[in-house]
């Protein structure tokens, strides 16, 4: 069960550039902040600014409790005004942090092989899952974890150090500067036949295009797959119904689910990519 979310005032301990346009925010939080489940996210906002108005959703990349406080790490990519301002926050600045929010990954006990598939900063929630430990906890038996990490070029394989040494690693870059040359889903397609469909679980997070290719790739297999989705958000708590994705409701009907509350993690088979075409 997820613990109760709260709104906390966090303090930026460190804000480090990890690659062009990518930064790692380390935020100190009060101990009262609930422990996130891998796949959950927080909504962050600079309380000193009137705009951007809405908080921005960011996945938990790492969370630790230390004496007297908790430390939250967020791995971010600059895409617009909000993330650009976050990238320039100095040590000591404050942020309001709402969370932890949403439903994380669920790993059935019968899973023997976990494949983590990430594109770019999509590595963040998967790195947290790997580091947090429940994936490999003692009663998980001989569970194997293999990470497939994809990015534009080698320096954008952010979070690589959080996987190295903790699981088998397969990398793919668009320019071939590290690992396979091409999309990460292509690399996975090559390997896929080697995994036992019944006991394998894929957990994925990345750009919409990557998730769609994954969906196509898995359509004819029976491999279970959970994906973390993104949608624009306002409240983050299920109140505004702004963040919906279309899902299949049976008998060809379309339903909408909230990414913030029903997700962000969904079974890939539930998602309806283009309601007007597929539906």
């Amino acid at each position: 069960m997820a613990e109760k979310p709260s709104v906390a005032i966090g303090q930026v301990m460190e804000n480090r550039s990890v690659a062009p346009g990518h930064f790692l925010l380390t935020i100190q939080l009060p101990l009262s902040f609930a422990t996130p489940i891998p796949g959950q996210f927080v909504m962050i906002r600079d309380p000193e600014r009137g705009e951007p108005l809405l908080p921005r959703p960011i996945s938990v990349y790492d969370f630790q409790r230390e004496e007297g406080h908790a430390i939250l790490n967020l791995l971010c990519r600059v895409v617009g005004r909000g993330t650009s301002l976050f990238s320039r926050l100095n040590r000591g600045s404050t942020l309001t942090v709402l969370g932890p929010l949403g439903r994380g990954f669920t790993i059935d006990p019968d899973v023997r092989q976990v494949l983590l598939v990430a594109g770019g900063v999509g590595a963040a929630p998967l790195a947290f899952l790997l580091q947090e430990g429940s994936l490999l906890k003692p009663d998980s038996g001989k569970r194997k974890v293999t990470a497939y990490l994809g990015a534009g070029t080698s320096e954008l394989l952010t979070g690589l150090d959080r996987f190295q040494g903790f699981c088998d690693l397969r990398a793919a870059t668009d320019d071939g500067s590290c690992g396979y040359c091409g999309p990460v889903t292509e690399l996975l397609a090559i390997d896929l036949g080697g995994y036992d469909a019944k006991s394998t679980l894929i957990l994925a997070c990345g750009p919409a295009a990557m998730i769609r290719s994954l969906d196509l790739l898995l359509r004819d297999t029976r491999i279970r797959c959970q994906v973390s989705l993104e949608e624009r958000m306002a409240c983050g708590v299920g109140a505004c119904q702004g963040c919906v994705v279309a899902i299949k409701e049976g008998e060809g009907r379309i339903g909408y689910r909230m990414v913030c509350k029903d997700g962000p993690v969904f079974d890939i088979g539930e998602i309806l990519w283009n309601p007007s075409v597929d539906g």
């Binding site: 809405l54 949608e231 702004g242």
Partner: peptide, 30 residues
């Protein structure tokens, strides 16, 4: 939240967009 006689599924996404000092929503009364 606004209630109708039968459940309503609302509009397709994207439903929200931040604008200058405000936001637009087209939730469609889900």
């Amino acid at each position: 939240k606004g209630l109708s006689l039968e459940p309503r599924q609302g509009n397709p996404p994207p439903r929200i967009m931040e604008t200058c000092c405000g936001m637009l929503n087209a939730v469609g009364l889900q």
